[in-house]
Amino acid sequence: MSLLNISGSPHVHSDESTKKIMWRVNAALVPALLCAIAYFGINALLVSIVSVLACVLFQWLIEKFIMKVPSTVSDGSAVVTGLLLAFNVPATVDMLWIVVIGALVAIGIGKMSFGGLGKNPFNPAIVGRIFLLISFPVQMTTWPQVGGLFPMTFDVPTGATPLGAFKEGALGEGVTFMDAFLGHIGGSMGEVSAIAILLGAAYLCWKKIITWHIPVTFIGTAFVFSAILWLVNPETYMDPLMTILTGGIMLGACFMATDMVTSPMAKSGQLIFGFGCGLLTIIIRNWGSYPEGVSFAILIMNSVTPLLNRWCKPKRFAE
């Protein structure tokens, strides 16, 4: 018999682990990935692969040669970042090399410079995306046009997203709610299909990795706020349903704002967080210079998270 182990109680542990959580998030992203491949074809697949590989490689290199710590790439968090980064860029050939730069910024600056998983104040994928948006404004807003299913060519015609078109004053003609819901619209590769994203979010809720608090308040606030604006002036402002179905609100609310590391821990804090994200998104969309504001909104709310953690305490037993 080997030596007896001694420790303080408890002596059992649930089968939860960081690794399990991260790989489940990856699983939840699969429907959106499939949708992206279906609508944007081989480009989407290639951009995703390049992005994921780049993120994993950069994390491995940084841990091995700069931080000199055992590698943690197997925990799957770099894969999550890679997928989310790919989902946030248009599926074009240019992206095949641009996304590598994005991966370096996301992993290197967004995550590892703070000490790795769990210590980053901002969502790494959003950091990467915003860096690319500012550095490569043309490539990042050249959206492939959606045609038939599984386009197998590299050269696809490009066009505007519904949001971009709206910003230019051309109200999204010919785009129906059903198109937006299924994802038959222009946009970043992972954000187009609301149904695929909701499917993944439902899985995460079922596995208790996320709770309803952030997605529902995020989307709800965006819907209510845009509805008010729309009721005031339907000419200038977008239809609220269209607002939440197009652009990155669905992807942001379900996968990026709910990132455990950068969102508040207490439920009350999560409600404020979701509300802030929704409000800022609509403000940036309507009065900012960018047609889309989800990334900026989440980034701003990420910076408020430590404060929310301080203010919003869980309810004590005795209260």
């Binding site: 080997s2 030596l3 007896l4 182990n5 001694i6 420790s7 303080g8």
Partner: peptide, 16 residues
């Protein structure tokens, strides 16, 4: 004579 498997802290281990 045994294997301590808890928090790496003498102050805590001393109470165990």
């Amino acid at each position: 004579k045994s294997n301590y498997d808890g928090l790496r802290s003498c102050a805590f281990q001393n109470t165990v």
